[in-house]
Design a protein around this nucleic acid. Sequence first.
DNA 1: AACTTATTGGAAATCGATTTCTAAAATATT
DNA 2: AATATTTTAGAAATCGATTTCCAATAAGTT
Lengths: 346, 346
Amino acid sequence: MAIVHMAKREKRITIYDLAKSLNIAPSSVSKALNNSHAISSKIKKMVEDKAKELNYIHNTNAANLRRGFTRIIGVIVPKINESFFANIIAGIEKVCVQYQYSLIICQTEESLEKEVNAVKTLIRQNVDCILISLSLETQTTAHLEEIKNNHIHFIQFDRVSPAVDSYTVVNDNAAASYQAVKHLAEQGYQKIAYFGGPAHLNLYQERKKGYKNALKDLGLTFNEAFVKDEIISTENGRQEALSLLQADVKPDAFLCTSDYVSLGVLEALKTLNLTSPKDIGIIGFANEMFTQLIQPSLSSVNQFSYEMGEQIAKLYFDEVMKNKENDKVKSVKVKTEIVERSSSSR
Amino acid sequence: MAIVHMAKREKRITIYDLAKSLNIAPSSVSKALNNSHAISSKIKKMVEDKAKELNYIHNTNAANLRRGFTRIIGVIVPKINESFFANIIAGIEKVCVQYQYSLIICQTEESLEKEVNAVKTLIRQNVDCILISLSLETQTTAHLEEIKNNHIHFIQFDRVSPAVDSYTVVNDNAAASYQAVKHLAEQGYQKIAYFGGPAHLNLYQERKKGYKNALKDLGLTFNEAFVKDEIISTENGRQEALSLLQADVKPDAFLCTSDYVSLGVLEALKTLNLTSPKDIGIIGFANEMFTQLIQPSLSSVNQFSYEMGEQIAKLYFDEVMKNKENDKVKSVKVKTEIVERSSSSR
DNA sequence: AACTTATTGGAAATCGATTTCTAAAATATT
DNA sequence: AATATTTTAGAAATCGATTTCCAATAAGTT
């Protein structure tokens, strides 16, 4: 796409205009507006009044250049309009306005190339910090190291790469799926299948680990055929469930790492004339809105996405910002909760 | 909340560093990097190589200050994590990256005060354009005029104020609700109630207008008691539906201006032992994900939110940006579509 | 070869704030 | 009253690019 160039905007009122009309120095105007203690309250009052009168608006751009930071935080997510990420962004925004920070949002649409470009854009924009959740494609991390090379603060969340040393905010994914399996077992399900996402993502490794550990601890047998990775859409879930449920040895429950996949399992049950929770137990991840509206309602792991957003932003303001060397990075775990609904209650 | 000040970041490589290490002038470096025709390809090559070698990253801030524009577009929405707005933002982002523009996102949480602050922040940040959908509270528009006073391009979308002269992108709301009523009538519903939002919003005035016009054209009687404003949540919808359905003269269908309200109507039906579509027809607005998943599935007006986002951004790049005086503003209508599902099909 | 015209690199001004340093004025101290 | 100290305003440098203008060189023309 061609890059279009814009005409320069008409000039705004500057501190020089204020200074001239008050017959004082621009530096004094600046100090007055910044409430510096090195300027009298008489001049402060004068300047403030004149600023209001002439409709002066501070030019952040000029100040940023001089100060060296921008009060802007960059956020990179796979998809802005996926409710999990939309909630996280909303939570981040809520906290950022309180600190008078702005947010630049980029989406990668699950593409590494777009992710690399987004990182470049944010570095160019001089953001103070980058908050990122990796795309499904991301397996290299040179672009993340680049953030650190440019001395920009950096927090990974949800989909993180342990290969890069940084602050992280994640759910305790291993514990969450452990709890989910335990819940299914308590409801009497014995042969529990696991539908995970791309195996190179730490997030899914953790969930699989929790699943396996729970089976072991509960004395349930582990069946390699019941474990599928790369199941991330409703359609994937439907097909894999169909094939598993038509095999000789069938599962009696599914732990899905997405509610959309649960939905696919449900569709498969319908075509096979099976019902949940009677024949098959189902539990998903994310606690999407629709899980409580459909029949049967779907059990799910609530990931507290909005709260995760708040915690990410708070981590930045409370810790990262004050840690100049970005050493002693820290990992924050966000609580999860098993929401028991029909699909796993018998 | 206290404003925290940040330490200045460590210095990055600048064009002065490149110039020094190549023994040429900074201005030549700038021209080389901008692919100016006033510089030889020999020097361009030299500069590009050295830039790569030293990991030079362009400082947008400095360039912005000099150029007078930022390649940043500000977006203000009531809630980032409402799927309608999340989709719009995603659509806007999709187009903006193609033009190498970044997005600053603000949410008002339906508060005028936050909206005013968001506008101020965006003006300070020197954005090239502000895209805004008004909060429910917004009835004054001084802050919007302020955008124009600062010569910042400006597009209103979805929830717009006709009191402010600006580009707008909206659904044809009158036509949409007209079609919705027509659809209900065709299915044999005669006494159609209307649940709208705050009456001061143009959006809802239009929808009510379409509703009334459709009734007239179709020869259906208009009943003032069947028209309610300020019904925007599931709970509102449930209560009002309950009260209407227990009155002497009852409606046999509901046109809801939100799918969440439809959901409330559905709840009311359950407590009254009525069913949809047999006893009562329902159609909502927004075509939310859940409308096709629940029982009965809910008919809805698809507003094509993602496409609306794309069109907003395209309007900016194709027209607004080129129209220096911002005169001859234009209103873009985004198509809608009646999605017929069980709740209105008998 | 002499002259005109096109290219191309560099010096310096500029964008609009912040900040350091200096000096004058106000206040405090003896 | 003389001196020491503190306040306060302003001059000038600075952030890192872009852009205008000029001069030197290269290329083209007769």
